[in-house]
Every structure is written in C-alpha cells, then in structure tokens.
C-alpha cells in the first residue's frame, strides 16, 4: 500500500521537476546554451540514436562504458570476495593488507591517472584497471567486515556439530556473510560507475563518460546533459538489478 503510494509520489516529484524545468526554458529564465530545456535534450537524444555521436551510434557508447565497468567489476568481485573474507577470518592477513587497503581506498583515483598511463599505457587496460582498483578496495573492506562479524553462536553451533574449518567457511561463514557481501558489491558498482568518468579521461574516444567530457569542450550542453542522464539512469538500473538479485539470493536477509 504505502510502497505503491511512495512510488507514485516519487514519479510525481520527477514529473513536477521536469515540468518546472520545461516552463523555465520556455520563459527563458535561463540561457538554453547553459541549461538546455528537456525538449531539446529529447531532440538531441533522437538525433543521436539515428546519427550517433562522432560517427558512433549512442548505444555503442553505452555498450563500451558498460563493457569497461563490467570488465573491471567481475574480476574485482572474483578476487575481492574471497580475499576480503580471508582478511576477515585471518587477523595476520588483515594486518598485512590493511595499511594498503586503508591508504588507497579514500585516495581520489584521479590522482593515479598519470602513473596508470605510464605503467599500463593509454589503451583499454588502464581504463579498466582504474575502475577495477576502486571496486576491489570497496569489496575488500566490506567482505572483511562481513567475515569478521560472523555470529559467535553460529560458529559454536558449527563446531559442536563437528564441522571442519572448511565446512565452517562453506556452511556458516559464507552464507552468513552473503547479505553484507551483496551490500559491498552494491557499493562497489556505485564506486566503479563513478570512476568511469575518471577512466574515460584517459585518452578515450568512446564511452558515455568520454562523450560528456568531449561534448563539454564544444559547448554541446544538450549532449552533456543527455550523457549525465544516461550515466545516472544506468547506475540506477544497475543498482536495482543488484537489489532484485539480493532478494532472490538472500530472501531471509533482514528477517529475524
């Protein structure tokens, strides 16, 4: 009931915002060159769908950006989840890794760009690497906390039922950590998507992030806005996909 009502309120709030934006544009309250009205952005979107941006169709830019994010994100999950869990379980490993993880995690990844270019060149590898490192650090921290916070009663139960260390990991620690692993992955998608812009500053000629930066230097604010809307929407959809997946995989989460 309230869920449906809140969704309706959210939709209405967006509709009112777009309407005010449109009216403001019609009344010329702001320069269309600096803030193009919604109609103009829709027109540019239609144009980009048929003609593309810089000879490449719009979906191509979206696909390239998604490819970079997933190319970085999948290895980040595959490496980050087991490594993070291990850090949570073995204090020595955590002590070894923690200084590096805590140093790099809050570091603005833009600062790494010069080094990454020198080390990995200006190709795809350096773009994927930047996103990978951001996502990995987020996942490591989340998974270490998840494994370290395993319920003491459940561990005792497992031991009392004769579980070996491996069995404890498989039957107790890992499933118990899944909700928090999902949260870490969800945060990592956000961070990875955020780092995309930084990554596409590295000598790119495709991708939505690049499109936004490139259009900005030609004062094509309509395309900049379109790119921003696409980035926002895609991030939003990715998040919803993860939340939906979470409901399927850990339906018990949040229920006592």
């Amino acid at each position: 009931m309230t869920k449906g009502r809140n969704a309706a309120i959210s939709l209405a709030s967006v509709a009112v915002f777009v309407f005010l934006w449109h009216v403001g544009g019609r009344l010329e309250l702001f320069s269309p060159l600096l803030l193009p009205p919604p109609g103009e952005i829709v027109d540019s979107a239609a144009e980009m769908l048929t003609e593309g941006y810089r000879q490449l169709p719009l979906w191509h830019h979206v696909a390239v950006s998604m490819g970079r994010v997933f190319g970085a994100f999948i290895p980040a999950v595959l490496i980050g989840v087991p490594m993070g869990l291990a850090m949570g379980l073995f204090p020595v490993l955590r002590a070894i890794m923690d200084p590096f993880v805590q140093f790099f995690r809050p570091l603005p990844k833009l600062a790494l760009i010069p080094l990454v270019i020198l080390w990995l060149g200006i190709g795809e590898v350096s773009k994927v690497f930047l996103i990978f490192i951001s996502a990995l650090l987020t996942i490591l921290v989340g998974c270490a906390a998840a494994a370290g916070g395993t319920d003491q009663g459940r561990l005792r139960l497992g031991r009392a039922l004769g579980a070996t260390d491996r069995q404890l990991l498989r039957y107790i620690v890992f499933p118990g950590a899944l909700p928090e692993i999902f949260t870490a992955v969800r945060l990592a998608v956000g961070v990875g998507w955020t780092t995309l812009i930084a990554a596409e500053m590295v000598a790119a000629d495709t991708g939505i992030g690049w499109m936004v930066l490139n259009a900005g230097s030609y004062m094509r604010t309509d395309i900049v806005m379109l790119g921003i809307i696409l980035l926002g929407l895609t991030g939003y959809i990715l998040d919803m996909v993860i939340v939906a997946l979470q409901k399927v995989v850990v339906p018990w989460d949040g229920k006592s």
Partner: peptide, 8 residues
C-alpha cells in the same frame, strides 16, 4: 537459549 537456526 537462542535456537540459532541458520536462516538460509
């Protein structure tokens, strides 16, 4: 005292 069932 707590049944300690595995929720999954």
């Amino acid at each position: 005292q707590d049944a300690n069932l595995l929720p999954w």
